[in-house]
Design a protein around this nucleic acid. Sequence first.
DNA 1: CGAAAGGCTCTTTTT
DNA 2: GAGCCTTTCG
Length: 727
Amino acid sequence: MDILAELNPPQREAVETINGPVLILAGPGSGKTRVITHRIAYLIKVCGVSPRRIMAVTFTNKAAREMEERLHRLVSGSVNDLTIGTFHAICARILRRDGKAIGVDPRFVIYDDEDQISLIKRSLQGVGLDPKQYAPRAIQSAITAAKSRLLTPADYLQRSRSYFDEVVQRVYERYQQLLTESTALDFDDLLMKAVHLFRQNPQLLSRYQSRYLHLQVDEFQDTNLVQYELMKQLAGKFRNICAVGDPDQSIYSWRFADLRNILNFEKDYPEAKVILLEQNYRSTRLILETAGHIISANQQRKPKELWTDNEPGVPTTVVETYTEQEEAQFVVNEVEQLVSQGEFKLGDCAIMYRTNAQSRVLEEAFIRYGVPYKLVAGTRFYERREIKDIIAYLRLIQNPYDSVSLLRIINVPQRGIGQRTLSELSQWAGSTGLSEYKALQLLAEQKESEATEHRPPFSPRSVRALTGFVDMMEGFIGRSQKLNLVDLFDLVVKSSGYKEYILAGVDGEERWENVLELRTVVREYRDLKPLDGLTVFLEGVTLVSDVDGLDESVSGVTLITLHQAKGLEFPVVFIVGMEDGILPHIRSFDDPGQMEEERRLCYVGVTRAKQRVYLVRAFRRSLMGSSTINGPSRFLQDIPPHLISGGGLWQGEDSQLATAMYSWNKPLPARVATPELKDGDHVRHAQFGDGVVVSCRPVGDDAEVVVVFDGAGIKKLLLSFANLEKV
DNA sequence: CGAAAGGCTCTTTTT
DNA sequence: GAGCCTTTCG
């Protein structure tokens, strides 16, 4: 059977164990994707399971697409009936089809992060609180946390402990009201409502349970409790659930992903078979060892030994530059060199960083040196103002009750509907118990009939402006029944006056280009039935993730955050910003749990690499305007010297370093000036305290020192990193 | 009502 | 350094 042919024994077992629950703990590069696809192919081709009875959950749409393609090749038949996608996309589908049972209108729109914040601000005002006093972000996070534990506002009330809880509870309640009034669901609702739907409709659940004979979840370590609950519901009948994950790559706890899911799995499914995939096929041996040293410093961790038959490869290059500009310069130079030597292509290289803000300097350097690059995200396309505006128009056509979209574009371009008119509108709408749009419709009708029952409080000028807007929208809505999506798009952009508005503003040309770019996306939906096209398009643009746009067929260096890099691999990986305060991020300093997650993030980065790893840091960098000096990342200390190759200080062509050293009277705390140490010397270390040197041997232009510390025990340190003080 | 200017606070990571 | 909010003036 060729589906099993190229698999090692544990992989094979993972593919063949199709009855009952299976937990696959898969180290990086252990052929996880291969196992999942082969397993599904095996189910279809060998076991004769119909694709429509299989559900596979992936972390991104891109992963889903790729898996579908691979399956297509493996099965050499149609897999169109397979249910495959992210949790959010799958839940949206379920709710559109069956959500009515719990009062979910199938025309719902999905609110993204930004929409949520704007709605939370309105909710705060709605309950008489000041959005400046209570950070909307913090409240949003608390609401997400609540929803991740399936708590409704009423449940939250009972658990309310603190003053902040109380605030959250009130806002949460109002926020849900506004969502309902807007016929909208936020990201978390998609998951929570799906679970509620099944809880309240056992017969519906039973239908789904009977349909899905096999369930497959990828990146299991990054699922939250709701997602786990949903899978548990769906697997309730057949219990054929296969979860794949790696606790060492859990990096989404801030999104309330919960590692306990892995522990609970074995509790909820005591008959589960646990399979370990420990052979790495991706990285060189030295890279794997480096990664191993980094991750094994975590305390809260089940030890696990990965191994590989691959070549040893070359040691990791560790480099310090003076500023983040030079860091970028180094990266670009090095990439050019690697490429010119012919061993690697541009597309083989990826630059990874902790925070999005770091991408700018890198981008500038790549532009300056004319090296092609692919930025994953950046100012993410769908978050641009002009894109969100157009989408708001389209959302409003699908669902005029969408208040976030309404308020967003009611005066864009300017139609003489100002702040004052708007607050009068919402007050008037509120007092008559109508949604904003209903109120507007009423107003437009009244203009003709002069009915005076609820006299709207607007000046004639405002009335004209408002009714003008309603008439326009009603026109769009009418036409939307017949027009294909491209024509609808063109109609909206033209008749709303948006095109002139954009072109007249700052960066008009560039922003208009973006609108046209969106139009090319829209073209893919041209052939769908008018209203379906709109729905599918809107859902697609809301649930996209940034990596979804990453195109391997385009040549260029990839610029990507460490989080986004999960699940990907590259021959050459640069991790920049290897500094305490960046990676690990400063926000994790006071929480050991968070610190461990930072370490896992670093581990994820290193294990993306097949051939080469560069760990780069800047001596000083500007953060939020001002310049800061960060020490080397503490994670570097956990890599033994023999796995590191020199590098050391690097100076760019117009380095500011020389100038700096000249103007400062003392040299930089450079490794040039490390003290000579010999056995028996007493030393002091910032972290470990006092100790005695037991050995010191040169490594490259550095030295490896072994010290017995009074408190901290025996440590192997790299002289230049350790900052030892002789006492 | 709207444009312009100045002041403020942050930035971790994202479906 | 940038986006967001408030203030001010026409």
